[in-house]
Simulated scan of single mutants.
Amino acid sequence: MAKVLLVDDDEELTRLLKEYLVEEGFDVETATEAPAAIAAAAAKSVDILVLDVMMPRMNGIELLQRIRRNGAIPIVMLTAKGDDSDRIAGLNLGADDYVSKPCSPGELAARLRAILRRSGQPSAATEVVRAGALTMHPASRIAEWQGKQIDLTGTEFILLEILARKVGQLVSKQEISRRAFGRALTPFDRRIDVHISSVRQKLGTRDDGQSWIQSVRGQGYQLLQDR
C-alpha cells in the first residue's frame, strides 16, 4: 500500500481527496504546512508527496526546491487552473507531475499510480473492480463489459467506477460530483448528466429494454445489478 502525504491548507479539499484515495487503496496522511513535508521527505516515511503551490509561510515551489536538494521522493504539485508559470517552475525544479485545482480525485489517483509505477514504488495497481458483467482496472483505466473492452474517456471511467463500487445502490449527484470532480455540485451543472448519457450508450440496454444506469430525478444514478 503506497503511503501518500497531502500538504494543502484547504482542509475541505484535503478531506475529500483523502477519502477518495483511501478508498482507492492508498495510505494517506495530511498536513497543512511545509514542515511536515520536509520531515516526511527527510525520514523517507512516505512514498509520494502531493504539494499545493499556494500555502502559508513557505509556498509549494519553495518547498519543492528545498526537498529536491536532499532527495528524489516523487512529488505531484497542485496548481491553480491556468497558472502556467507555477507549472513550468515546478517541473523545472523536479516535480514529477502537476494537477490543476479544483482537481478530480480520480485524476489525482491516476497520476499517483502512474508516477509510483515509474518509480518502482508500491501502488494499488492490481486492484480490480467488478460489478456483474463489468470489470474495471483503475490503474490502467481499462474497462471490460460483457467480456469486451469498452472505450471510455477519463471522466466516463471515473463516473462508471463510482457507480460500480456501489452497484445496486443509488449514488447521489452530490456524492458523484465530490468524488469525480472534488467539489460540490452547483445549480444547472449538467456535466454529470452528459457524461452518464454517453456511458449509457456504450453499455447498451438490458434484455427488458432498460438502461443499465437508472436515474432518480433530482437525486442521482444507480448501476443495476445483473438479474
Rank of each mutant, 00 (worst) to 15 (best):
G120D: 09
W145Q: 00
S177Y: 04
V171Q: 04
E175W: 00
R165I: 05
A124P: 10
Q146M: 12
R178C: 06
R178T: 04
F181M: 07
S140G: 03
G147A: 07
I115F: 01
R113P: 05
L152P: 09
P122W: 06
R165W: 08
R183H: 14
W145K: 03
A180R: 00
P122K: 14
L159M: 10
V128S: 07
L159R: 09
R165Q: 13
A180H: 00
A133F: 11
Q121M: 07
R118E: 13
Q121T: 00
L163M: 06
V171M: 01
S123R: 06
S177E: 01
T135M: 10
A124H: 13
S123N: 14
T135W: 03
V167N: 13
L134N: 08
G154F: 06
S140P: 07
L112T: 11
L170D: 07
I150E: 06
G168Y: 07
F181G: 03
R113N: 14
A133Q: 11
A143G: 05
L159V: 15
L159I: 15
A180E: 02
K148E: 12
E175C: 02
K148V: 05
H137A: 09
I150P: 07
A131R: 12
A164D: 14
I158K: 09
A114K: 10
R179A: 05
S177Q: 05
K166A: 15
M136N: 02
F181R: 08
K148D: 06
A139P: 11
L160V: 10
L159C: 10
D151C: 05
S172Q: 03
L159P: 10
K148L: 05
L163W: 09
R113I: 13
L116N: 12
D151L: 13
I176E: 01
F157M: 12
Q121K: 15
I158E: 14
E161L: 15
D151S: 14
R178F: 00
I142M: 03
A114D: 09
S177D: 04
S177W: 02
L152D: 13
A114S: 12
K148Q: 14
I142C: 02
L159F: 11
Q169M: 12
L160W: 07
S123P: 03
Q149I: 05
A139T: 11
G132D: 06
G120Q: 09
V167I: 08
A131W: 12
A180N: 00
G182L: 00
A164N: 09
T126L: 07
R141Q: 15
A180C: 11
E161F: 03
I162D: 04
